[in-house]
Design a protein around this nucleic acid. Structure first.
Lengths: 231, 231
DNA sequence: ATTTTATGCACACTGAGTGCCAGAAGCCAA
DNA sequence: TTGGCTTCTGGCACTCAGTGTGCATAAAAT
């Protein structure tokens, strides 16, 4: 599948990376609309037909790792998360995507600058995000199937998780993509997790007036332990 | 050329409606991809250039009332909603859009059948929905500006409201777009409203053991009244 | 009646995306 | 090495969406 990865002398990057580099160089220099596919393949030194072999559309070259990120999310959701709140698992899946953005801060920042300016790229980005949302909704739909409003809840929680993730990510990107992306994303996701926590996770403790404090503390401790082990 | 109809009776629908009708007829008959702009204008009996005067892209003809719907939502949000929960107002704005869909059930159903099958139209629809979401987020951002997490909360609630609205609308459309759309959309929106209600709206009443029931009832009544008047 | 304005139309052009075929480059058996 | 087999790449021609421009016609204004 891959080109000859002989340990000898193949320092030439594969065509796909060549195209991405050439495209971003031209897009940032003279703009997305003012750059044709011919310009890109000329700079990359490959044939025009090869571009569409690696990227079905002109927009795809701006999101070269999208397929990979989506596959990672699916793999994460397919792993075992029994005993964990489904909302928490969904937030974990969002964090997987966040980490992939954080792995290439400069690339993510340049792409963000592009998607902000070019409407066509913004539209494409939204459709990409929507695929994440759909994947999360499918997972949550399975987890919420026992609830009477499981269907709505799944779609709503998925949308909320994705929105919070994007908000945190945008905050990080606007701050120059320096520092820890999780510091921006995690608080946003925690807010979603708190608001959508099931009431079954809450403990209401009733005690007679006059109960000694140590007994109350003990009861609270026991109740919280039960709540952790159960469900 | 031969446009000179009798000047007395101009019951001929405007070109814009002609194009929409012709486009939908061809799209549902032979598919979106297999229909060219030339086919549409030929059936509509107008020039090719006129199509792009009314619809900037081929996708736009599938959502001819989008601009109007967005304007209606903006107008609704600009009206006075003081004393109402911002989340409730956002749900009301979503209901405005829902009503516009419900006004033309058959058209909405045909469009739904198209957007389900054609990826390009699905992408366009997502970008349309995203504009609603952005508008809601801007409104909620103003309403939540006093909260420490107002930014995330605004975007998250907007996403949740839109997701719930779409879920209800899809449910209605899949059931043949017969009956009341609100019956599907309202419960979904109510779920969002409940989960995002501020804790300041809750009342926790503490009473000594042995307090007579009528006193408890009285206290509850008073507390709820205060909660209603204060905001 | 003539100028102004608006609107639809025809023509030509750019550029994205596709189908097809030819050639180059690996791979495996003989 | 040779010869077939597969895979990858490039070139060419084509369709079609979308744009710029100029012209024709009808209504409106003067």
């Amino acid at each position: 599948m891959n080109k000859t990865e002989e340990p000898g002398t193949d320092d030439r990057p594969p065509i796909r990376d060549l195209l991405v580099s050439a495209a971003f160089e031209l897009f940032t220099e003279r703009g997305y609309e003012n750059t044709t596919i011919d310009d890109i393949v000329r700079l990359a030194g490959v044939g025009r037909r090869s571009f569409f072999r690696y990227f079905p559309t002109k927009e795809d070259v701006v999101f070269p790792d999208h397929e990979h990120a989506l596959a990672e999310m699916v793999a994460y959701l397919q792993a075992d998360h029994s005993g964990q709140d489904p909302v928490t698992t969904a937030c974990g899946a969002a964090r997987v995507v966040m980490r992939m953005y954080a792995e290439n801060p400069t690339f993510s920042a340049r792409r963000y600058a592009l998607t902000r300016r070019v409407p066509a790229l913004k539209t494409y980005e939204i459709s990409v995000v929507w695929q994440y949302e759909r994947t999360l909704a499918a997972y949550l739909g399975r987890s919420f199937s026992h609830l009477p409003d499981g269907g709505v809840r799944a779609y709503t929680v998925a949308a909320a998780v994705v929105a919070a993730h994007n908000y945190g990510l945008r905050t990080w990107l606007r701050s120059g993509a320096t520092g820890d992306a999780a510091a921006s994303v995690d608080p946003a996701l925690d807010m979603v997790r708190r608001t959508f926590h099931e009431p079954e996770d809450a403990v209401v403790l009733i005690a007679r007036t006059g109960t000694p404090l140590w007994q109350v503390v003990q009861k609270v401790e026991t109740a919280l332990k039960q709540d952790n082990s159960g469900s």
